[in-house]
Simulated scan of single mutants.
Amino acid sequence: MISKKDRAKGALMGAFIGEALGVGPHWYYDLEDMRAEYGDWIDDYTEPKADRYHGGLKAGEISQAGILLKMMAEHLIENDGYNQAAFCKMMDDDFLPKISGKAMAGPGGYTSQSMRHLWRARVKNELPWDQVAGNADTTEAIERNIAVAIFYAEDLEALSLNITENTALTQSDNLIGSLTVSYSSVLALLVQGEKLDPQISAKLMQAVDDGKLPFHKVTSANLNPPAGDNMVKESDLYGEGIFASPDGLLSPSYMARAAVDEDIKIEPAWKAAVVYGMPCAIYHMLPAVYYLAARFKDDFEAGVLHALNGGGQNQVRTMLTGALIGAQVGFPRIPERFIEGLQQKDELLSLTDKLVEKI
């Protein structure tokens, strides 16, 4: 039996490991170029080339996505949960002064689109926090909110409201919010002890019916038509739901079915990145992540390495896959070499233990 604390620790450390694994071979869209630089199979931390996105970092060092996740975990520990005003102050005081609105600069060697937009809006134009969200269609809110999903794993309603609020600070598209909450809810169920299998979406949909997740839903069980007006369950809190449809909650089961269907073959598994798409957009990232995390639910090493070797936006793919598999296998089953190879091993382990003690 894997304890909840081991699953939570596996999720957070799995995310840090996945993010650090991607520092070297990040954003190679020509797989032949990536293989020429790093060999036919990347199986460990690597140092980025000087002229690449994270040039100057060492093998096993986290970059900006990992730094922001670390800051979010510290915020949750200090505030005993998510506090929007305190989060904004932390960003104003501790992060935004370190970036400049330029891509190839800032902590981790590269600054993401949503953070560049945030800097221009908040620092250069001095806009209030409720006017700084941009239109990035990427996973940047998911990445930092991994810690929030772990913290609120037993309270899906608090998880969904806090993550929706935090996501809306930097990304204005409601669909991005929906998919961010969907991934976070999947991670929460895995921390609870569920598996990423074909039944997981039914459990998420039950949470919608129970008023715990703010998605609009009109179907009855198994996506059948409503059997009368009383079948539409809309809580007093959500009305028609913050999010227009629950489709983001349904996707994980389809990817999990593909992973176990003998008639569906993606070989080698890293080619899931080609099947679902190598670019950064959230709608490319999540299907590949769910597929790999379901296929390698018992094998952390195989899962993160196939996520990594698919190229493209492999850093995020590996980070998100690492969190989902880490939650399923638990921290003790993460290979020791991935822990030992982290540059900030002691600090990240201590931080993770402190967060886990809070849940």
Rank of each mutant, 00 (worst) to 15 (best):
I359M: 14
K124D: 06
M319P: 03
A136R: 04
N162M: 12
Q313H: 15
Q64K: 01
S253Y: 04
I42E: 10
A86F: 07
E267N: 14
K345Q: 11
D263W: 10
P332L: 02
W41E: 07
A307R: 03
D43F: 12
D6A: 06
S112R: 09
D33F: 10
S3E: 01
S235L: 08
M91I: 12
D93G: 05
I325V: 08
A269K: 11
I242L: 14
D173I: 08
W119E: 02
W27H: 15
K98Q: 06
Q84G: 13
V208Q: 15
V181D: 15
D51Y: 14
G330R: 03
M72R: 11
V304L: 06
Y29F: 15
V329P: 00
A105E: 11
M71R: 05
A86H: 02
L305F: 05
A85T: 14
A327W: 02
H284I: 07
Y28V: 10
D353Y: 07
L31G: 11
D236H: 08
R333A: 11
P198T: 00
Q64I: 08
G14N: 01
K89G: 04
W27K: 13
A188L: 04
K58S: 11
H54N: 01
A256F: 09
C280R: 10
A327E: 00
Q171K: 04
L196T: 04
M231T: 13
L196C: 08
L249Q: 11
L31M: 15
T318E: 12
Y53P: 00
N222W: 12
G277R: 01
E340G: 11
R122C: 06
K265I: 10
M231V: 05
H54G: 00
T219Y: 12
Y53V: 05
D93I: 02
T170H: 06
L21E: 14
S63F: 05
Y254Q: 13
L118G: 02
N224G: 13
D130L: 09
P287I: 00
V260G: 06
F95Y: 14
L21V: 12
M278P: 02
R122H: 05
G211N: 03
A272T: 06
M104F: 13
Y38L: 10
M285A: 12
L348Q: 01
Q328N: 02
K89Y: 09
P225F: 06
Q343A: 13
L223H: 15
L286S: 01
F151D: 02
K102N: 10
L187K: 10
D210F: 14
D346A: 15
I359R: 10
H54M: 06
A65I: 04
G311Q: 09
M34T: 03
V23A: 12
S245A: 13
L76P: 05
N174R: 08
E194Y: 10
D33E: 15
A323H: 03
S185P: 09
A221Y: 13
A121F: 08
G14T: 05
T352R: 11
A85I: 05
L204Q: 07
S251M: 15
T111N: 00
L189V: 01
I325W: 01
I17Q: 12
E194N: 12
Q192H: 03
V191H: 00
